[in-house]
């Protein structure tokens, strides 16, 4: 419609994406992580790095938004903005008040969660649940924002836990929801390679990075994860590597290359079973009619 030739402004051709950007950081604070069991002090270092990174995100633009979550083995909670009334923070040094607020609130709430941790049993962190909560939070902000406003949202998962296939279904559900909601999921692996979360990054166009040295965590975060998705194409960032797209079977939660798929509900099994555990379809024994009732499929 606007094809009338108008005196064009002599602005340099710089594309700018000045939209509100929301970052939800999910920090895995489960004391059961292997690296924390070896050296509990690493957590302090990680928390400090994450807070500095979160503040750098707020520093980018005045309208940027931030949320930080702590993810545990039994629960996931928002630690910034925390539950209840915001703290009344007065400046103590030259730090910008909003940044002091983030730091104080985060540390206080995290301490509360950690001190209420009682069981010593080592269980895995509920990352999929935390991502789901983050997605809900993003959806809520999207709903209450005034018309015309644009909100770019992304989730950053910082974790040192290992990958477990037991949450496979939950992971896949949140990844595809995120993809549908245009939420980018970034993953920063501190300790071990995480193949499932890497799939999530690939699905949602996020970045995956396994930090080579924990000492330089803040620098890695700032370099790789601070640029928001629209600027990322202007920067040279770690190239995507080949993603391991193996699925986990529903019976033993193990990653498999070749398995059996239920022809009705598409559940995946590593061994043949006559009744599908998900939809209870009854299959005939494979011997006489091998090709018809079950399908051998490479995934």
């Amino acid at each position: 419609m606007n094809n009338i030739e108008l005196p064009s402004e002599t602005q340099p051709d710089i594309t700018s994406t000045d939209e509100t950007s929301l970052l939800v950081v999910i920090l895995d604070s489960n004391p059961g992580q292997k690296m924390l069991r070896d050296n509990p002090h690493i957590l302090t270092h990680c928390v400090d790095s994450v807070i500095a990174f979160a503040n750098s995100h707020l520093m980018q633009k005045a309208q940027n938004k931030l949320a930080i979550m702590a993810c545990h083995s039994k629960t996931s909670q928002f630690i910034f903005p925390g539950p209840g009334r915001p703290l009344d923070v007065r400046q103590i040094d030259g730090q910008y008040e909003a940044f002091t607020n983030v730091e104080k609130t985060t540390k206080q709430n995290l301490a509360k969660i950690l001190s209420s941790e009682t069981s010593s049993a080592i269980t895995e962190s509920l990352l999929a649940g935390a991502i789901a909560m983050a997605l809900c939070y993003i959806a809520r902000l999207n709903r209450i924002k005034p018309p015309g406003a644009k909100l770019n949202s992304r989730i950053l998962v910082v974790t040192g836990s290992g990958c477990s296939a037991s949450q496979y279904m939950n992971y896949m559900n949140v990844f595809f929801t995120a993809q549908k909601q245009n939420v980018v999921i970034d993953v920063c692996a501190l300790d071990q390679h995480l193949s499932l979360l890497q799939q999530g990054c690939d699905i949602t166009n996020g970045l995956y990075l396994k930090v080579p040295q924990l000492q330089g965590l803040l620098q890695y975060l700032l370099w790789v994860f601070l640029p928001e998705p629209p600027i990322r194409e202007k920067l040279v960032l770690p190239p995507p590597v080949k993603v391991d797209y193996r699925a986990a079977c529903f019976c033993h939660r193990e990653l498999i290359d070749i398995g059996y798929v239920c022809s009705v509900c598409l559940s995946i099994f590593c061994k043949f079973s006559p009744i599908c555990t998900t939809c209870h379809t009854v299959f005939k024994m494979p011997a006489p009619l091998a090709g018809k009732t079950k399908k051998k499929k490479k995934i």
């Binding site: 500095a52 503040n55 750098s56 520093m59 007065r90 400046q91 103590i92 040094d93 030259g94 730090q95 910008y96 008040e97 940044f99 002091t100 730091e103």
Partner: peptide, 19 residues
């Protein structure tokens, strides 16, 4: 130096933040 102060803390407080 001063951007670091604003981001991470340290230095003198701003003039209007007395208790």
């Amino acid at each position: 130096k001063n951007l670091k102060v604003a981001l991470l803390g340290g230095g003198k407080a701003w003039s209007m933040s007395s208790a």
